[in-house]
Amino acid sequence: MIDLDLVKLWDNAFYGMAIIIFLVGFWIMLTHSNLIKKIIGMNIMETAIFLFFVAIGYVQGGAAPILDQQGVSYVNPLPSALILTGIVVSVSVTAFALSLVVKLYQYYGTVDANEIAYIRRNEE
């Protein structure tokens, strides 16, 4: 039922690997209770999507989109432009999440989600 076209998969390894990295990031985010680890996983997940996006815009034999040559084929500049935005967004989310984590550490003395939940349950 499942027949894998290996040549196509090899050609599309960028997409496949990006999705695998995305899943790894997802897995880090879900299984680790340490909040800083979760944030690292979040970053890995987002960069994987960015890799996927940039790979979409690639053209075989294309040059970087600095338009100072004539008669050359360029890669698609649109995904690059979008990803520039995406990187900045992900940095800002990371910074804010880290400030929340620092604040949580002041309150609970730990950055582990399970321990925090345990402390909370004991309080109630």
């Binding site: 979040m42 997940m45 999507i49 989310v93 929340l100």
Partner: peptide, 30 residues
Amino acid sequence: RYAMEAGVKYLILSTLGSGSVLLAIANIYM
């Protein structure tokens, strides 16, 4: 402290949500 914890949870889960939306956008764009 409860608000902080809720904020972290909210931020992380909604980033997960926007991450999958972005992957979907990439797929559609592709």
